[in-house]
Structures are given as structure tokens and as C-alpha cells.
């Protein structure tokens, strides 16, 4: 009882006000903290590709790169950039021109689709920080053991990232309807 009070008190103290705010080093699935591993990997389920689309190289291998902003007519006609600063950006800011099977960071570094959180993290830094701590998005598995993250793109379509509304599950039965 006393112990908890103490804990809660310390927790609720505005730590930052004393300049003591400490980065909580997120732990990846292998138990390494952010600071130990150069590019930590977070354990995630496979990326949510549409069936048959990956590897992209099955079509893009040898296909000329067309960096021009345009309405796609021959393929990917369902892809439209929306609510995602589309005026400032086009496909090849995220997708890698010469090897379509990987993504591309602003630095020129390429990353696998399994690590697309680094792509999003370039612009959504605070969200990325929360995500690593398991607070934005979610982790499943063991609260004191192995955890599985979700990629940003499991919840946000990268091309139209606004979270899609869902159908709610049924409301509870009203007391007046209980037999």
C-alpha cells in the first residue's frame, strides 16, 4: 500500500520539470535496446500486401522507371494519394526507383518492407517514438516477454493514411429487454 503510493507519487511527479526526463530505451524482440543495436528490428507480422503483388520485381525488373507525376492508367489504378501531403510528394519519394522490392529513405538508404516504420518515422518522429515504446499502435504477445509490433501500414494505408471507420459490435441489451 505504502509502496504503491510511493510509486504512483514518483510516477506522477512532472519529471521533466526537474530536467531529469530520461529516454526510455525501447526493447526490440531480441531484447536489445535502441542504443545497443544500430538499426534495431522490431518483430512484426508480414506486411499486408495484396495477394500476388510482391515481389514487385516480377513486373518492374527491366521496366523503365517513370518518375513523372501522373494518373496511373495501366496498373495500380486503385492507388491514389490522399490526405498525405500529396502535393509535396510522389511515389518514388518512398518507393525505390531501381529495385522496387525495397523502400527508400530520404538519406538514400534502402529498407525492406518489413521495416517500413523507418520510412514513416522520418516525418512522424514523436509517433515513431511512442510506437517503439508500444504506446502508438500496439504490441501483442507477452507483457513480460516476446512482443509482436504492428507495422504502421497494418493500420494506415500509406497512400491514404487516415484510419478507416469501423462497424461497431452490437450494443449491450437494455435492461428492459432482459427476459
Amino acid at each position: 500500500m505504502k509502496r504503491l503510493l510511493l510509486v504512483l507519487l514518483t510516477l506522477l511527479l512532472p519529471v521533466s520539470a526537474f530536467g531529469l526526463e530520461k529516454e526510455v530505451a525501447p526493447i526490440d524482440a531480441a531484447g536489445r535496446s535502441d542504443k545497443e543495436a544500430s538499426l534495431p528490428e522490431y518483430f512484426v507480422p508480414p506486411p499486408p500486401f495484396s495477394e500476388g503483388i510482391y515481389p514487385c520485381s516480377q513486373c518492374h525488373e527491366g521496366m523503365p522507371v517513370n518518375p513523372k507525376r501522373r494518373v496511373l492508367k495501366d496498373f495500380h489504378t486503385d492507388i491514389e494519394l490522399k490526405n498525405h501531403a500529396e502535393d509535396q510528394r510522389w511515389c518514388l519519394d518512398c518507393h525505390n526507383a531501381n529495385n522496387r522490392d525495397v523502400l527508400r529513405l530520404v538519406s538514400g538508404k534502402v529498407i525492406r518492407f518489413e521495416e517500413s516504420y523507418y520510412l514513416c518515422g522520418q516525418c512522424h518522429g514523436t509517433i515513431f517514438r511512442d510506437w517503439k515504446a508500444g504506446v502508438h499502435g500496439k504490441r501483442t504477445g507477452e507483457w513480460n516477454g516476446k512482443k509482436v509490433y504492428r507495422l504502421c501500414v497494418h493500420c494506415h494505408n500509406p497512400h491514404q493514411p487516415r484510419f478507416k471507420p469501423l462497424e461497431p459490435k452490437p450494443p449491450p441489451v437494455k435492461p428492459s429487454h432482459i427476459k
Binding site: L11, L12, I27, D130, A133, G134, R139
Partner: peptide, 10 residues
């Protein structure tokens, strides 16, 4: 390092 502590602190 738990997520609940992160929430409470940040």
C-alpha cells in the same frame, strides 16, 4: 521500461 510507465511519464 513498461508501456504503462511510458504513458504515465509522457
Amino acid at each position: 521500461n513498461s508501456e504503462i510507465r511510458y504513458c504515465i511519464e509522457k
